[in-house]
Design a protein around this nucleic acid. Structure first.
Lengths: 229, 229
DNA sequence: CCTACCGATCGGTAGG
DNA sequence: CCTACCGATCGGTAGG
């Protein structure tokens, strides 16, 4: 999983292939493969922001979580707010990427033959299942932070995040419209979208991977709740 | 609306009815009817906690909002956390009270004749409409704070709030069970409850009283989304 | 309820 | 990326 938000960091192998092993200071096993210390910070921040909230998490907490001193996160990020934004942007980038992959694997065929009724239903199932995975799957702190810490973004950051959210939801809308057209969804698409995402997003508040139902169970329940026939 | 959380404040008229007008310092129009300065603090805290979040709101903000000096809120509340708890507890107390009244006015008749199918549906409609009112109606900051600031409660406070929430939801469960039994709800009641509350509670994030649909529209949409037939 | 105050913590920076 | 540090702010308290 690539955690870098921008690609401005120099890649290890540069253009001219020089054979001579440069005098790069040797690293211990724990220390090597840095160069994405930035990514470590983002991951640690995501975990802490989710646990305690943005305002209650200090940059010192985050630094300590990756073994840095209190001032060092500011070598990688201009401000605490920029770190929050990096968490959210990386979360959405990754979620959109995974969603595209999931759809590819599901072998989409919407707007095809007359089977579109079954097909739209199957697609929603895939989308919901993926959404649960992104929110509740192993090591998914990014999207919960994105969902619940909007308040701390600047107006400009909000605009960008809103754009990414539109990208994420872009693939849902035609599915909902097809379901509405075929009578499997009785609620106007615009409000249906908001209510359905609410039902799903709220699961972050109560889902317990150790006890409650599985993500498959959740998906079945959601389908049964929203879809007619 | 009574905002006092405990009734420990002395009432104005005491046991022995003395005719003589006591030398109570005269108050201007703005100042009179205090004695619930405590209530003022709770209302101001609710508004600010909702706007900026608990951690980002200072006790000085709250004090200033009611025209007090920075140290004065601590005359009324032991700590900032106690003030948060007072907001939530008052919110739930009021919501439960209003819910009972709403149900009384709706003239319940569940588990009556064979009309229970229509009746269960109508009851859910009433409950949903009331829930939207409590979350999104004029001056309702208490429940949104309760929904989104759990993290800042102590374990003991959480237990009490969970108990109040159970009271609030107690009346929903038989309705959902009746709907499930009659085939109007296809989703297992336990998960249905969580998903439905999620869909409703999330509206706090996007509802705009000035633009979007009315609370009635929301209620119709939710019913159409959840209920079969 | 105000005045005056305290210790702790926080985001962030200079300079290496 | 560390050291050393700063100004600001915060929750809370004593004493009236």
């Amino acid at each position: 999983m690539n955690l870098d938000v921008d690609t401005s960091m120099p890649s290890t192998a540069s253009a001219t292939a020089v054979a001579k092993p440069r005098g790069r200071p040797r690293k211990t096993l724990e220390e090597r493969e840095d160069g994405n210390r930035k990514g470590d910070l983002i991951a640690a921040a995501a975990k802490l922001f989710r646990q305690k909230g943005f305002d209650a998490t200090s940059t010192r907490d985050i630094a300590a979580a990756v073994g840095m001193r209190s001032g060092s996160p500011f070598y990688h990020f201009k401000s605490k707010g920029d770190l929050l934004y990096a968490v959210m942007a990386e979360g959405m980038r990754s979620a959109i990427e995974k969603q595209q992959l999931t759809l590819k694997n599901a072998n989409i065929s919407l707007s095809n033959s007359e089977q579109t009724k079954q097909e739209a239903r199957r697609l929603l199932h895939v989308l919901i299942r993926h959404h649960f995975e992104v929110m509740l799957g192993a090591g998914s702190d990014f999207i919960p932070v994105m969902l619940y810490e909007w308040r701390s973004l600047t107006p400009r950051q909000r605009t960008t995040m809103a754009k990414m959210q539109r990208d994420y939801e872009a693939v849902w809308l035609p599915v909902l419209e097809a379901l509405f057209a075929s009578g499997q969804l009785k609620c106007p698409v615009k409000l249906a979208r908001l209510l359905i995402f609410g039902a799903l997003n709220w699961s972050v508040q109560w889902f317990d991977a150790k006890k409650e139902a599985s993500l498959d169970d959740l998906t079945e329940a959601a389908m049964a709740l929203f879809i007619k026939d």
